[in-house]
């Protein structure tokens, strides 16, 4: 297991070790007894079996002992979990968004990033949200995980206690590139954190259309350099003539505002020849008309 790097790690690992310890003890013990019986009471060594129908004493013993043990296990599980639901009042609150297939974060001062930087030994609360389907925000080193639900009110918090860079993974299956939905969290000193807050560029300094493409993970499937990924590239797209399949019929279209808008809102209406249907979901609910206009404006710049 990765070294724990948050204050929760101790409680989680303790519950794990206690349950695993008890389990391994019983696993080895019972298996050993079972194998011993098979040899000791083999047909050869013990030609005549003794019929023992049961024993109430033993039944009581092996009901009571497991009951006590599972209560102990539950207790440690609960104790390790309890602090995860009590967010300290002084926590830094960051909005975290999941979408197919990337994470993005919005700091209290409005800075938007695609990975996290947080100060060591300070509680951080993440309000979890999703822009499309279910995701799950998971930092193995911190032992935290909580689903990102669209319109949901989920949250999690942690207090990192070891500086370093740790993986953020998506743990809830969310479609084609689920396993590539990764990010990182960097734990730094207070001073470094403050200088990062003021100096590092926010994604919002870019062309607003590009920010939207990044936030909505469009670029996972549509390249900006002309290479073919899952969908057609954005490079030189505007004004180009494409052959598309509409309701099974091939036709030629010129890429303009109307075409791009339709492709964003009804991605399966026209499929560019050579690409697969059904891989893109509609963004009609996600992007406003103004935002789509920003995106088109940005695509125009990619000549």
């Amino acid at each position: 297991m990765r070294t724990g790097a948050s204050t929760f790690a101790e409680g989680v690992d303790l519950s794990l070790y206690i349950i695993a310890g008890i389990s391994i003890f019983f696993l080895i013990g019972i298996t050993a007894v079972m194998i011993y019986f098979v040899f000791r009471y083999s047909k050869k060594r013990n030609p005549k079996a003794t019929n023992i129908e049961g024993s109430n004493t033993l039944e009581v013993i092996w009901t009571v002992i497991p009951t006590l043990l599972v209560i102990v296990m539950f207790y440690y599980g609960w104790m390790g979990y309890k602090p995860m639901r009590n967010v300290p009042d002084d926590a830094i609150v960051i909005e975290a968004y999941g979408q197919m297939w990337k994470f993005s974060f919005e700091y209290p001062d409005g800075k938007v990033t695609d990975s996290l930087v947080v100060p060591v030994n300070r509680p951080v609360k993440l309000n979890l949200n999703s822009r499309d389907v279910l995701h799950s925000f998971y930092i193995p080193a911190f032992r935290v995980k909580e689903d990102m639900v669209p319109n949901g009110e989920n949250y999690l918090w942690f207090e990192p206690n070891l500086p370093g860079r740790y993986d953020i993974l998506c743990a809830e299956y969310c479609g084609q590139l689920h396993s590539y939905m990764l990010s990182s969290i960097t734990v730094v000193s207070d001073a470094e954190y403050n200088s990062w807050l003021t100096s590092a560029p926010s994604i919002t300094d870019e062309h607003p259309g590009l920010s939207l493409l990044k936030q909505n993970a469009c670029l996972t499937c549509h390249s900006q350099d002309g290479s073919k990924i899952i969908g057609p590239s954005f490079k030189g797209l505007f004004g180009k003539t494409e052959i598309v399949v509409t309701d099974g019929q091939e036709r030629e279209v010129t890429v303009d505002e109307t075409y791009i808008t339709r492709s964003i809102k009804e991605p399966n209406a026209d499929i560019v020849q050579g690409y697969m249907k059904g891989l893109m979901v509609s963004y009609a609910e996600v992007l406003s008309d103004e935002q789509i206009a920003e995106i088109i404006d940005y695509i125009k710049t990619l000549e």
């Binding site: 989680v12 519950s15 794990l16 019972i30 194998i35 599980g77 979990y81």
Partner: peptide
């Protein structure tokens, strides 16, 4: 049958790990 008992015990006991709230937070969906 003996293979069943051994493997089922591993399956069941690992289920206890997953039943514990704290441990499950780490291991859920892994």
């Amino acid at each position: 049958a003996l293979g069943f008992i051994f493997q089922f015990m591993i399956g069941g006991l690992s289920g206890l790990v997953l039943g514990a709230l704290a441990a499950d937070i780490h291991l859920h969906d892994t």
